[in-house]
């Protein structure tokens, strides 16, 4: 779908470069360039080119159905996007789903990570089982949850004793979509947090225990601060993903009941209406939102900083 911004951790600060390179060093550089070159070309072909093409398209009136009417119209498409009430409604829907689902995923993911970290026996089994939802194809997961929530065939309305159809209402549909997202993505969150837990030295926790710190204090004062880089990376990854939510909503109801996300709007404009200019403008705006989120996480909170590096 959309191109996600990837937060590359900044490379360790390079030492001041020597002016003169030895023959051997020059050779090594050439080899390095040769090794990296193909990957770079592929990246340009599959990432840079489509993005640039989308930017160019977004500055045009371009419709697959009316190729003769294509023309350059500057930033008009962006004007249409920002002045459309439906766009801002969809931004709101997307933010609601992102904030709530990522928050729940974080809390549950942390619990799951602690369980996986502290599991005494059957460690591999616990970790394997916990990862199953993440391994299920997104569309399949969305279908099974949609069936589970539907009034006639599903077990959830029966379990909750509902007489109405939850998927007929905005609130019920949001709950169903968020539950699906949480179920599907919590394991990934847990996995990233588990890596962070491994950074916390046992000696520190034991020392705190000796000093009389309670379990909660040890968690909040020692574990969380030391895990901060991992937490931020986990939140960043999940937020970027959640903000581009598409499959679950598409399967549930294609954005009906006021659940349309920005990606759904993008799909409808590009693939149903075949309006390439306007659709590309939506894509670029979504890309900028995602880039902004990444920027705020990295610059604002220092995600991706080296472990222990306190800003």
């Amino acid at each position: 779908m959309t191109t996600g911004a990837v937060a590359a951790p900044p490379a360790a600060a390079a030492p001041p470069r020597r002016r003169r390179l030895t023959e051997r060093a020059r050779e090594e550089r050439r080899l390095a360039a040769l090794l990296v070159g193909p990957a770079l070309i592929v990246m340009i072909a599959v990432t840079a080119y489509p993005i640039i093409d989308a930017v160019i398209l977004s500055l045009q009136r371009s419709d697959l159905r009316f190729p003769a009417q294509s023309k350059f119209i500057g930033l008009a498409n962006y004007g249409h996007v920002f002045s459309a009430p439906v766009f801002w409604q969809d931004v709101l829907h997307t933010v609601i789903i992102t904030v709530i689902s990522v928050s729940i995923q974080f809390v549950l993911g942390m619990c799951l990570a602690l369980i996986m970290h502290r599991a005494i026996f059957a460690r591999g089994l616990v970790r394997g089982v916990a990862l199953i939802p993440y391994g299920i194809v997104a569309v399949v997961a969305a279908y099974s949850w949609e069936l589970a929530w539907s009034l006639n065939s599903g077990w959830i309305p029966k379990l909750l004793g509902l007489s109405g159809d939850p998927l007929s209402h905005t609130f019920g549909t949001y709950v169903a979509i968020i539950v699906t997202e949480v179920w599907k993505n919590t394991p990934f969150m847990a996995l990233l947090l588990l890596a962070g837990l491994a950074l916390v030295p046992d000696e520190l926790l034991e020392a705190a225990k000796v000093d009389g710190a309670t379990a909660w204090q040890r968690f909040i004062r020692i574990t969380v601060p030391l895990m901060k880089p991992a937490i931020l990376v986990a939140l960043l990854f999940r937020t970027l993903d959640a903000f581009r939510i598409f499959d679950t909503i598409y399967i549930f109801n294609q954005g009906a009941q006021g659940t349309e996300s920005i990606s759904m709007l993008n799909y409808a404009t590009l693939l149903n209406r075949l309006n390439l200019g306007l659709g590309s403008a939506v894509s670029i705006v979504l890309f900028l939102f995602v880039a902004l989120i990444a920027f705020v996480f990295i610059k604002g909170f220092g995600a991706g900083a080296a472990p222990g590096g306190e800003g």
Binding site: S150, L151, N152, S163, G164, D165, L167, S168, H169, N253, A256, Q257
Partner: peptide, 20 residues
Amino acid sequence: DPSLNVTMEGQADTAFDMGN
């Protein structure tokens, strides 16, 4: 039907066949 907002041809068919 309480599911009117999510009823397409297939769901309408199923609901009728279920006797509702």
